[in-house]
């Protein structure tokens, strides 16, 4: 949090006198706490930095300025920054979700396949906090996301016992997410109405997966009448660290994703069927989702014109 860059810039000013031991024993903290004047100044700067980010109308440059002042003063006096506040690594604006911050999940770029040697495999997902002022993408570890999903699947297996039931439940959970997610997708991606199903699947693969999972997918295997195709995913942040045990071979671990797509398309009046054709966890080389358009429900009102 701003410390690295700052240490290089201002290292000679603020960090020369501080040894690691001093920091560990809290000598610096007691020094700062004893000085009421600098403490109240620190509080004041913090309030200013906060105020500037939530104020109406937003003045982003002012927020960055106060954020910088706050960080500089904090480091000069050795007061640790408030852990509940998050600042941008580059411009030091205090980041507030909903005001000047977008949060997304991103897949680490390393192209390591899931073989049996997990120990030297350091894939790691990141939560990306994008600052609206300087557009810097602050990354944080997102293993919690992957682990949480794993815990959910585990719990479902315990509760429902049958692998088939778990698949069904994951699909239903995905559906419930999809019917809400579609609105966010439409509101924030600025895509317009799709002309045909080809365009729709393309948008899902290129924009949708990028936006919510941080990976891109490709669309292949179109059938002749353009109602059935495959979405191929090479990377999937959900399956890091996962090995399917022998008694769960029928489990579609990522079945939640197929549910999300089905739910999302349902809300824009397309009835679809989404099934997994290939799964890395079952020994295939990629993930392949088959999306089949069953029916296009026209947006009409349920009355007849002449009645």
């Amino acid at each position: 949090m701003g410390k690295k860059g700052r240490a290089q810039k201002l290292g000679s000013v603020s960090h020369t006198a501080i040894s690691l031991r001093e920091e560990a024993t809290g000598k610096i903290q007691t020094k700062a706490a004893s000085n009421t004047k600098s403490k109240s100044r620190f509080e004041h700067l913090k309030n200013l930095a906060l105020w500037a980010t939530t104020n109406d109308p937003l003045i982003p440059s002012l927020a960055a300025f106060y954020g910088h002042q706050y960080a500089t003063f904090g480091e000069a006096t050795g007061v640790p920054p408030d852990p509940s506040l998050m600042t941008c690594q580059r411009c030091e604006t205090v980041l507030q979700p909903g005001f000047n911050l977008t949060v997304r999940i991103e897949k680490n770029k390393s192209k390591v396949r899931h073989k049996r040697k997990k120990t030297d495999n350091i894939t790691q997902n990141n939560v990306v906090y994008k600052c609206h002022f300087c557009l810097h993408q602050n990354r944080k570890n997102a293993e919690l996301f992957t682990l949480t999903y794993g815990a959910i699947v585990r719990q479902l297996l315990t509760d429902l016992e049958e692998v088939e039931e778990v698949n069904k439940q994951l699909d239903q959970m995905g559906y419930n997410i999809g019917i809400r997610l579609i609105d966010e997708f439409l509101a924030k991606s600025n895509v317009s109405r799709c002309n045909d199903f080809r365009e729709t699947t393309d948008v899902i693969a290129k924009v949708g997966f990028k936006m919510f999972l941080g990976v891109t997918a490709s669309v292949t295997n179109w059938d002749a009448d353009g109602t059935c195709c495959s979405i191929v995913l090479e990377d999937n942040p959900l399956v890091d660290f996962v090995e399917l045990p022998d008694n769960c071979q029928g489990l579609y671990y990522c079945n939640i994703l197929s549910g999300v797509i089905r739910g999302a398309l349902d809300m824009v009046s397309m009835k679809t069927e989404v099934t997994w054709l290939r799964d890395v966890l079952r020994g295939d080389d990629v993930f392949e989702l088959q999306v089949k358009l069953l029916k296009h429900v026209p947006e009409e009102y349920p009355y007849k014109d002449d009645e």
Binding site: R180, L181, E184
Partner: peptide
Amino acid sequence: LKFVYELYTDYVLKNPFYEM
């Protein structure tokens, strides 16, 4: 209106206790 739509997706639809 576009902005209200975004707020709706963020603060209404993402609220797990909101019923569609």
